[in-house]
Amino acid sequence: MSAPLIEAIGLSKTFPGKGVFHKGKPVQAVKHIDASVSRGEALGVVGESGSGKSTLGRLMLGLMPVTEGTVRFDGKPVTGGSRAEWRAARKRMQIVFQDPYGSLDPRRRVGDQIADGIGIHGILPRAQRGARVAELLAKVGLDPAHAARFPHEFSGGQRQRIGIARALSTGPEFLVADEPVSALDVSIQAQVIQLLGDLRRDLGLAMMFISHDLPVVANLCDRVIVMYLGKVMEEGTAREIFARPIHPYTRALLSATPMLDPAKRSQRILLQGDPPSPSNPPSGCVFRTRCAHARDACAEVVPELRPFGDGASRVACIRAEEIS
């Protein structure tokens, strides 16, 4: 694999605890994560709601401060850097948000919103921005004349295309797609996924694709990391993860994927109980309280993410060899 374009090293994020459920205890949303994306590569990030997927994406983009660890972009650390260093890096990395309704300002024309990044980073003079906006709208499958419209005049799928056009306005090399189709009708989801795949190929984008839709991740991504309660349980190529999952949590996620072909359906693995509170995670392996393979040692040892088999995959499970 080529050198990473963006890399997280030992990344952690802790939020102060608030509310009756957390009783003032700090909430560790992401804990000691190593992740990287190479140029032109698509990394899928999967896991249940609350596993830390979106937090990881925002930390890598610098949209929230890290508690611990380092983010390196194109070989240079950006965490702890000056505002000028972050500004230069942000021009090269962008995000497509989950909510196509809330991510656009309803009071402004969409063309002006797409042009914001172009103006902020001084990419083009004002006289040339209209042509660039028209080009971007056409690239995402919309009529350039739509630049004069307001967000409420578009459907959800069209708004997400506008969000993608805005993300592309600065010519980024790295794109975080945070659940980009979960708020859309099923009939529209495939179109947006196809658009992201085409853009990735045509523009050579590195992409972090955050999703709970495992079949989409299998088709779109080169590698996958599986997260649970802020930690990575398993990492590997999409082919290996979906063909031969190792970690019990990965197996449970894949067993819940709907399959139309009865011959391809696996036996459903039902996890017991709800995920633990991130303000009070279990000792040892954070998944042990819901794992059918857990033993006493799982409560005592924090499993490291380590190579498994031929080294193409990594897994955080002390019993991986026994249960595989």
Results as ranks from 00 to 15, higher is better:
V78S: 03
T79V: 04
G80A: 06
G81V: 01
G81W: 01
S82K: 15
S82W: 13
S82A: 06
R83Y: 11
R83V: 15
A84V: 14
A84F: 09
A84Q: 13
E85C: 12
R87F: 14
R87K: 12
A88I: 04
A89K: 01
K91W: 02
K91D: 04
R92N: 03
M93C: 08
M93V: 06
M93G: 02
M93Q: 05
Q94G: 01
Q94E: 15
F97Y: 02
Q98V: 01
D99A: 02
D99I: 02
D99C: 05
P100T: 00
P100G: 01
P100Y: 00
Y101V: 00
G102M: 06
S103V: 01
S103A: 08
L104N: 01
L104E: 06
L104T: 03
L104P: 01
R107P: 11
R107W: 08
R108E: 15
R109T: 14
R109A: 05
V110P: 02
V110T: 06
G111E: 06
Q113P: 11
Q113E: 04
Q113C: 15
I114D: 10
A115F: 07
A115K: 14
D116Q: 04
G117S: 12
G117A: 09
G119Y: 14
G119R: 13
G119W: 10
G119I: 13
G119Q: 08
I120E: 13
I120R: 12
I120Y: 07
H121V: 08
H121D: 07
G122A: 11
I123P: 07
I123R: 12
I123K: 09
L124C: 13
P125D: 15
P125F: 10
